[in-house]
Amino acid sequence: MTWDIHDIQKWSWRKHPLGGVIEDPGNSSKFKTGGWRTFRPVRNALNCNQCLICYIYCPDSSIIVEDGNVTGINYDFCKGCGICATECPRDAIEMKDEGEETDKQNK
């Protein structure tokens, strides 16, 4: 990636590429969308049989898979849509209130 946008907030209107075109691909990974979440999927590894259905269904590629196994959920990008929880045949994923989960984390 070559497009340096670290100080984009300070840019003059003249500096932006015309029409909002981004000529430097792949930088959407810098744009963390997890903050949009109101419910958080929490996976219980004990109930999981590694069928990978959640991984296939997740529209945000937020199910983390390592060596063929689900190891976690990427909360930087998970938008909390709940598809994984609905599709999981083992009810291994529960949607929890994001606010309460954040409070717990911050304690």
């Binding site: 003059s12 209107w13 932006h16 015309l18 029409g19 909002g20 075109v21 000529e23 691909p25």
Partner: peptide, 25 residues
């Protein structure tokens, strides 16, 4: 060989105003 992304979502970072000024220019 020179990929570009067009029609991107702006409203969270908020540079819409700047792009409108470019159009006026």
């Amino acid at each position: 060989s020179k990929p570009a992304s067009v029609g991107n979502f702006d409203s969270l970072y908020g540079y819409f105003f700047e792009f409108k000024q470019q159009q006026e220019e």
